[in-house]
Simulated assay, not measured.
Amino acid sequence: MNTDVLILVLSSLGVAQALFLSFYLLTLKKGNRNANIFLGLAIFGLTMRIGKSILNVHLNLDPWQRNLGLSGILLTGPFLWFYGKALLDAQKKFVLKDYIHIVPFVLFAFLCAIIPNDGRPISYAIYLTVFAHLATYVVFSSQVFYKHRTKVHPQRASWYRNLVIGVALIWLFYMGHLAGLFSLYIGGAVFFSVLIYIFSFLFLQKHAFQLGKYNASSLNKSASEELLHSIKNLFEQEQVFLDNTISLETVAEKLHASPRKLSQAINENENKNFSEFVNGYRIEKAKKLLADSDYNKEKIVAIAYDCGFSNATSFNLAFKARTQLTPSQYRKEFGTV
């Protein structure tokens, strides 16, 4: 087997694996549905671009076909960014206006037959603009990671960070080829193949663990929702979250349920872990006290303790993560005299 055939096989296998992963994510019903779809579309966009590289080397594609493949880059950037928001920001709700970011992809794909792609300077300018678009969204995605990296589980943050780095490396490869630093054009496809197999292994391993976490549980969806309702009633009526020693076990004991089922009910219905769930109640209580004129002389650290936090640092971090304001800023903006 000569080198060209080996490269073709490796590249084609990478594209096939990427298409499989995209299809898997787009049809997956469990877990964070938005995140699954966004990641599937981001990978599909890259697959369009990489597939174009492979086909163009061996089939000499027409300009409109090259443009259609290039349009995948305009799909990847926005959905990589959306994926980060869906994965790392539990409060984010996507609305119709968010999807204006895919308009460049739609226009480019629709106009692929008339957009120049024939080696003229304007063709290179368009090519650079498309990759500048991706670079912009890589920066946006990096900002999402930086903003939320301390608010989510480290594994989730590192997974997204590595995904962004992988896309950035593909971008660097193609820019390096354009600048003459890399002579092998299809090398980007080979590099993509390596990355997609690494990401497939890491994602499926991580996702299989998440999906299998409650496989043995006897708690169905209806019972899970009912248990969550009981948990919320307990929190709202007895305000057990004010106890800074509260644990999953103590709440489970009060509700005569197992800690595992409590964890499942919170995780499946609220998309939060127990600590995040408890802190949500504590912060809502703190917001009321900070805005209450009867507490305007109370020290913030005292309010933190009153709301169930064991120290001021964890209170400040949790409060700002949820409200985007420090407790002092919140009191200044919403407090009454």
Rank of each mutant, 00 (worst) to 15 (best):
E225N: 15
V194T: 10
V240A: 03
F182M: 11
I186D: 02
T245M: 11
L227S: 00
N244E: 09
S217C: 14
N244Y: 13
L195W: 06
I198V: 04
A179F: 05
N162Q: 13
A208E: 15
I170C: 11
H256Y: 09
L242N: 07
T150S: 10
F199C: 05
K221T: 12
W171L: 14
S230K: 09
Q239E: 15
K232R: 13
F199N: 06
Y174H: 12
S158D: 06
L228S: 09
E226I: 07
I165F: 06
L228E: 05
S218E: 11
S183L: 12
N220F: 10
H177Q: 15
S230I: 03
V164P: 02
E238P: 05
P259V: 01
F192C: 02
M175E: 12
V190E: 00
F199M: 07
G188C: 03
Y185T: 09
F209N: 14
L163W: 02
L255A: 00
Q205S: 13
E226Y: 13
E226F: 14
V190C: 01
N220L: 12
V251I: 06
I196M: 08
N220R: 09
L219Q: 01
T150Q: 09
F241S: 03
N233M: 12
A168L: 03
E226V: 08
A252N: 05
Q210C: 08
I186G: 04
I198P: 01
N215H: 14
L169D: 04
H153M: 12
Q237Y: 15
G188R: 03
L195R: 08
A252M: 03
L219C: 02
I196T: 00
F241I: 00
S258Y: 06
I165L: 04
L169V: 05
K151I: 08
L202V: 08
K254A: 00
K213P: 09
L163T: 00
T250Q: 04
S183H: 09
L195N: 05
I186T: 04
K232L: 11
G212N: 15
F201L: 11
P259H: 04
V194H: 07
Y174Q: 10
V251E: 04
L172N: 07
F199T: 02
F201Q: 11
Y160D: 01
K221R: 13
F201P: 06
N233C: 09
G212W: 14
S230P: 01
E249Y: 11
I165M: 02
E249R: 15
K151D: 12
E225C: 12
L227N: 02
F173P: 07
G166I: 05
G176D: 11
N215A: 11
A179L: 10
E225D: 14
A179D: 08
S258M: 08
K213S: 10
Q237I: 10
V164T: 02
N215P: 08
Q155V: 10
V194L: 07
A223K: 15
L163C: 03
W171R: 05
F203H: 09
S258T: 10
L255W: 02
L211H: 12
S183K: 08
L242E: 14
I165Q: 05
L234N: 01
L178H: 14
